[in-house]
Design a protein around this nucleic acid. Sequence first.
DNA 1: AAAACGTGGCC
DNA 2: TGGCCAAGTTT
Length: 352
Amino acid sequence: MRDAGEMAEELLGWYDRHARVLPWRVNPAQRAAGILPDPYAVWLSEIMLQQTTVAAVRDYFTRFMALWPDVAALAAADDARVMGEWAGLGYYARARNLLKCARVVAGELGGVFPDSAEGLRALPGIGPYTAGAIAAIAFDRPEPVVDGNVERVMARLFRIETPLPRAKPEMRDKAAAMTPATRPGDYAQAVMDLGATICTPKSPACGICPWREPCQARAAGIAADLPAREAKKPKPVRLGIAYVGRREDGAWLLETRPESGLLGGMLGWPGGVWGDTAEDLPPVAANWRDPGEEVRHTFTHFHLRLALRVADLPADCRPVRGSFVPRLRPTDLPTVMRKAYDLARLSFGAAE
DNA sequence: AAAACGTGGCC
DNA sequence: TGGCCAAGTTT
């Protein structure tokens, strides 16, 4: 096996030719000229990219940067507006922590992001991966950056057959040993690009991989089978009900969900806790009708079957729960609530 | 330390 | 079509 420094060189050479062009990125030539990316943009992109694909993030990132071009602007933003803009991207605790973090940086750190992994790690929403990534990418610090891509690449390169998550420490050690002292920002992005474009989860393109020769899994013909994972638990089914009410003037009856927990801080239709039964009292007395079709939605850890009730509400109605949103932007709803909205709207259309 | 926490694309 | 998976963090 060749040494780590030599392999890093080969990967960086590949990256110089094949680096993906992304809106939050500085390309290798710019970086070579001493240009570093805006830490705010790097931070925003890294939070959005947690457990989320580049394709899903791209438009959200562009929109956030246009609305809130710097950390001071974001810190001053209205919470509900930010949550609405995040709607659809998932893992909403990220958006809540995004605001907390922006306010700490803008309010206590003079608007300047810490330039060390340790300093970054102390901020809300920034864990070990994100701290290393921002330190490496925005400040060219030689920090190990270990995400799912890197774990997959290391599992294959070193033929680590221990299943995840048990193998995490071993993969982290291998990744740290491979991290070069030179061009750390480019290297961090290079390994992730390799994982995203060549060393992909299914049918990796080993034939054109810059690390094809030292790769032990490829030599053994088992690259596509790694990394191994522990068996997953089956997802239970939960039931729920959603009351989609529309007032005469077009306002919709919604409530803001509690800050913590599932869909925390997001808009949602009134309806009880999701569980073994779908029963809940309506938020206001009305002629609630059953559109006959339910919403099916799968979260990380359960399947949801959401029954719907829809009603036209009079101008003077006084709901016991929720409040009327005059000009609802459906895009402000998390996806499961958006599905309920779409179905309910069909039902209103049919009634008109 | 295991469980909670979203969503969309892919096969 | 249903399970797998993605630039993880928090509690």
